[in-house]
């Protein structure tokens, strides 16, 4: 028989866990916040440090935010269907199916090396990426055709792999974003190109396009960035990334 003190400790410990949010709660609240303007604003700065403000204005938090939102869906909600993902982020990323041609892929350049892409696949980075999104893309994608080639398994495999495909796409996109934040635009652009090849009809095309444009800006490939931005803004004038793109080198003049 428990003493009252033991019972109290047990109940309080249980209540602390129980009264906390579930993964679904987190996903729902975060999805709501992602739709607010504040989520996409650079952090307010103290003491009017304009230099930092400029740096922040060109940083890539938008990708972080949506990546986290989607990552939360993938990482915490094991039972969340892909359609649920699309619904939750639809106001941000919609129309998901029609964005593939918004920004044409940029031709690969010699400065994006095979080595840099190899790093993407071989070396998962630490960070707040949910476990599902950190699955090694190469390993997962390599397994897909094998499963699909089995008699009668193709359709089941396709359904089953919807989530993992999105996870791979998200994982790569997050790495591109992190590379961009580290001012490693070459790697970021290389990852985007890898995404173009592996997921030509991906779900996160708006995010990919914006990442491409910001990468090009960072590489001072302004003309290409402007061309991409022109297409992007024409296709998605109300995109949550539109302001960031307009603020970039591609939006000037």
């Amino acid at each position: 028989m428990m003493s009252i003190e033991e019972l109290e400790r047990s109940i309080l410990a249980g209540a602390r866990q129980e009264l906390g949010p579930s993964a679904t709660d987190r996903m729902r609240v975060q999805s709501g916040l992602v739709l607010t303007e504040a989520w996409w604003k650079p952090a307010p700065l103290r003491h009017g440090l304009r230099r930092s403000l400029r740096a922040a204005a060109h940083s890539w938090r938008g990708g972080v935010a949506l990546g986290l939102a989607i990552g939360a869906l993938l990482g915490y909600g094991a039972g969340v269907e892909l359609a649920g993902v699309a619904r939750s982020v639809a106001p941000v990323a919609a129309p998901l199916g029609s964005v593939a041609s918004a920004a044409a892929p940029v031709p690969p350049r010699a400065d994006v090396t095979a080595d840099s892409l190899a790093v993407v696949v071989a070396a998962p980075e630490p960070g707040p990426v949910p476990a599902a999104a950190d699955a090694t893309p190469a390993a997962v994608s390599a397994a897909v055709p094998a499963r699909a080639s089995e008699p009668g398994a193709a359709r089941r495999a396709a359904v089953r792999d919807n989530g993992s495909t999105l996870a791979q796409e998200l994982s790569l996109l997050q790495r591109a974003r992190r590379a961009l934040n580290r001012s490693d635009a070459r790697l970021a652009l290389g990852i985007v190109q890898s995404l173009d090849e592996r997921f030509p009809n991906g779900v996160l095309m708006e995010e990919r396009s914006a990442t491409r444009i910001l990468s090009l800006c960072q590489l001072e490939r302004t003309e290409e960035a402007r061309e991409q931005a022109h297409r992007f803004l024409a296709a998605h004038p109300r995109s949550v990334y539109a302001e960031r793109v307009r603020d970039s080198c591609a939006g000037g003049q």
């Binding site: 916040l33 604003k41 952090a43 700065l45 230099r51 930092s52 922040a56 938090r61 935010a65």
Partner: peptide, 23 residues
């Protein structure tokens, strides 16, 4: 503290953005 950190020593240039606060 948000990325990127462009502050000099002794300067607190940035405070958490909303995504970071949420996390």
């Amino acid at each position: 503290v948000s990325e990127p950190s462009a502050s000099q020593p002794g300067e607190l240039s940035a405070v958490p953005d909303l995504a970071t606060l949420f996390r």
